[in-house]
């Protein structure tokens, strides 16, 4: 089970790619599909590698990313 999870709001994303640059785990890539605004949005290509560090969310200029992190046992 992955240690983290990212959810990307495809309609808010403008495809700038800064999250892809920031991700230390190469989880993200740009989708081949377009959103309603005509952008290739960011999507999770390797979701199983996510560690929930939140870097993608911090660098996102459009507040399009929600990040979850797996809790330690017993928490």
């Amino acid at each position: 089970m992955p240690r983290g999870k990212v959810e990307i709001d495809a309609d808010r994303c403008k495809g700038c790619g800064l999250c892809i640059e920031a991700c230390p785990q190469d989880v993200l890539s740009l989708s081949d599909d377009f959103n309603a605004s005509g952008y290739n949005y960011a999507a999770t290509e390797n979701p199983e590698d996510c560690v929930g560090c939140g870097f993608c969310g911090k660098v996102c200029p459009d507040v399009a990313i929600t990040v979850y992190k797996k809790q330690k046992e017993g928490v």
């Binding site: 309609d11 939140g54 969310g57 459009d62 990040v67 979850y68 992190k69």
Partner: peptide, 25 residues
């Protein structure tokens, strides 16, 4: 899974009109 990063409450749901990659956001 615990939510560790999300949109702050002081921002509403309206999308920014900034260009892609703009630091204003």
């Amino acid at each position: 899974m615990k939510k560790v990063f999300d949109k702050p409450e002081t921002l509403n749901d309206q999308q920014f009109s900034y260009c892609p990659g703009c630091h204003h956001g």
